[in-house]
């Protein structure tokens, strides 16, 4: 048993260089490889490239498409969407939804994962299988009763509705991720603590949580990304204008404004919606990638 587990999903290592045939055939092969990958990378990056350059165009000068950066870039679009189209408020709403749902999911999952790993009780295996199965249930399948339930509870258009729904849908994935990590912690540590007289709660707080910190970070981060990116739940449960999230805002504004001279504005808005993800990814690439690989589409 290796510990700490380093293969949780396996963070890809850079491809090790292989010896390729020398001479002109090898050189030709290398050129072909690079050509293929450059073409593919271009296809992947171009849409985001045109998004970025359009976001710096002046709306008045924009004629429907921009393939090259403008010579007179402006931040005006960012200022406008932020202050006049309400992206400032949407940003806050998205952040509230994303961070609180991730916090709730991570906190509850930590307790449940500890229970699953450290306690032997009847029905444990069945419950765990249920958790794994629930990971595969998408939001759309439960959205109908969920919206009715939230209406009955009087929670629609109030903060807890989307936050609880998002946390509940993320929870199985969070439990699974933390469980796979915690089960690799050496059981002797907990036995030692037990002999030392520590309660379960103390074992959880002082031993399990500090040791699981990397997995907790991954779980929180990936949960936050999913919640930030989700459209359906806030669209249905947070319909009030003051609760609009970035994704809902984009979904409402996009179709009515694309293809018009409002495109630069819209692209500025999209850029704002992606920015926190880019930051999270830049800061914690390994944790994010590991969590995404483990969780799949949650």
């Amino acid at each position: 048993m290796s510990w700490p587990p380093d293969s949780a999903g396996g963070t890809p290592e850079p491809p090790a260089p292989r010896r390729r045939p020398h001479g002109w055939r090898g050189a030709l092969g290398a050129v072909a490889d690079h050509g293929f990958l450059i073409a593919l990378a271009a296809v992947c990056l171009l849409p985001l490239y045109v998004m970025l350059i359009a976001s710096f165009e002046r709306a008045a000068d924009f004629d429907g498409a921009a393939l090259l950066p403008t010579l007179s870039p402006t931040f005006e679009n960012y200022r406008t969407v932020w202050t006049e189209l309400g992206f400032d408020r949407m940003f806050v709403n998205s952040a509230v939804l994303s961070l609180s749902a991730a916090a709730i999911a991570t906190a509850l999952a930590a307790g449940a994962a500890f229970g699953f790993t450290r306690l032997r009780f009847a029905g444990r295996g069945l419950l765990l299988a249920g958790v794994v199965a629930t990971m595969a249930i998408p939001a759309i399948v439960v959205i109908v009763p969920l919206s009715v339930l939230m209406t009955d509870l009087g929670l629609v258009d109030r903060l807890p509705s989307a936050i609880l729904a998002e946390a509940g849908l993320l929870l199985p994935f969070a439990i699974f991720l933390l469980h796979t990590y915690m089960r690799e912690l050496p059981s002797e540590l907990f036995e030692a603590a037990e002999v030392d007289g520590a309660s379960r709660w103390r074992q959880f707080r002082e031993i399990a949580l500090p040791l699981a910190r990397p997995a907790l970070a991954t779980t929180f981060l990936v949960s936050a990304i999913y919640a930030w990116n989700d459209l359906l739940i806030p669209l249905v449960l947070w319909q009030a204008e003051q609760l609009t999230t970035l994704m809902v805002g984009l979904a409402l504004l996009g179709p009515s404004r694309a293809g018009t001279q409002n495109v630069p504005l819209l692209m500025a808005g999209v850029t704002i919606s992606i920015l926190p993800l880019a930051v999270a990814f830049a800061v914690a690439r390994r944790a994010v990638v590991r969590g995404l690989v483990e969780g799949g589409e949650r």
């Binding site: 002797e188 036995e191 030692a192």
Partner: peptide, 15 residues
């Protein structure tokens, strides 16, 4: 109220 010393020592790594 007994104390145990483990083969792996089981020292708490975070403390």
């Amino acid at each position: 109220d007994v104390a145990m010393v483990f083969q792996s020592y089981a020292l708490y790594p975070s403390m």
